[in-house]
């Protein structure tokens, strides 16, 4: 797909390097202690001066995950300390914003550390705009993945030292759905439910049977042929007359797939799904439960069991491996 003409301006920015952004504060114990309190980090290396003195550093050091936090501007956006560049390392995000991609969400944070930084050190970083991806549509909306690489340095009279690097990737997007400001307050996170089957006049008997703990198979009244999935007409004799028989629920795995990626809630991970050949002779697709990886094999004997999900909203026939 051809890109909008303004994208050439965005593309031209890729590879650009931006000058230093300084830290408001030198690495200091009070900010470290508060960070540890929030995160629940209890390593005395960050908070106990006596313990820290006994380590190879001889003093309290910053928790490594705090590296980026030292150089953030704080309450007022783009209010960087004196000595910082007057360029905006995030100008590409502003440009995307001006074209309607107003929302942003952080996607990747890849930190690597050359060394730990001690209390008293003063940090800054420089930035390179590494990449702007193709336009993508995700569940959040449509937009661009933007990758920045920031190199962190400690100021030293004898020459600044690189202490770490951060690859930071954000998704800059136009939201797919904006919630009304007066939307009801969400007290609890909505648990993700199992998708429900689409029930039609042809399939209702099957799901009613499952809800009653029975595995019902459609049978032609004229010629006796069993069929699944359900349908209005016998594929053999074309009769519209049918009734059902209750299957024993015993069968074997005719084929299977084990879903590893993506991990889809609320299903088990990995998620094994079988094509089950019932002893009565028809096949159906169903989830496998309680199966060790080596039990998921063609020919493995299985038995149906009915499991209830989402507070009884849904009952599903699932199959569990059994001894032959």
């Amino acid at each position: 797909m051809a890109e909008q003409d303004w994208m050439s301006e965005v593309r031209a920015m890729v590879g650009r390097e931006y000058g230093r952004v300084c830290a408001w504060d030198e690495v200091n114990a009070p900010m470290i202690r508060q960070w540890c309190e929030m995160m629940g980090v209890d390593n005395p290396l960050y908070t106990d001066a006596a313990y820290a003195a006994s380590t190879e550093y001889g003093a309290i050091v910053s928790p490594p995950a705090m590296l980026q936090a030292w150089c953030l501007e704080g309450l007022h956006p783009n209010n960087y300390p004196p000595g910082s560049t007057t360029e905006n390392p995030y100008e590409v995000l502003r440009l995307l914003e001006s074209h309607g991609f107003k929302s942003v969400v952080a996607v990747n944070s890849d930190l690597s550390f050359e060394r730990y930084v001690k209390v008293g050190e003063r940090l800054y970083y420089t930035t390179r705009l590494d990449a702007v991806g193709e336009e993508k549509t995700t569940a959040l909306g449509t937009g661009f993945f933007v990758t920045l690489i920031m190199s962190f340095f400690s100021e030293k009279p004898t020459g600044d030292e690189k202490v770490g690097e951060l690859l930071f990737r954000v998704f800059k997007f136009r939201p797919a759905n904006v919630q009304a400001a007066e939307a009801p307050k969400v007290e609890m996170v909505q648990k993700i439910k199992r998708p429900k089957p689409g029930v039609s006049d042809d399939t209702r008997f099957f799901w009613d049977g499952v809800a009653a703990g029975k595995l019902l198979i459609q049978r032609c009244k004229s010629c006796g042929t069993l069929r699944h999935p359900p349908g209005p007409v016998c594929v053999k004799c074309h009769s519209f007359e049918w009734d059902t028989v209750e299957a024993s629920g015993a069968g074997s795995i005719h084929s299977f797939v084990v879903m590893h990626y993506p991990e889809v809630p609320p299903f088990d991970h990995p998620n094994p799904v079988g094509l089950i050949e019932l002893d009565e002779g028809v096949r159906l697709v169903a989830g496998l439960v309680g199966a060790k990886r080596n039990e998921i094999a063609i020919g493995q004997r299985v038995q149906v069991e009915f499991q209830s999900f989402d507070d009884g909203e849904l009952t599903l026939p699932l199959f569990r491996p059994v001894a032959p």
């Binding site: 980090v41 936090a69 952080a106 944070s109 959040l140 797919a176 759905n177 904006v178 919630q179 969400v186």
Partner: peptide, 17 residues
Amino acid sequence: RALGSPHIFMNILTTSG
């Protein structure tokens, strides 16, 4: 909510922590 979220959401630096 105005940004399309049902509630406040955790920032990536807390996740790193």
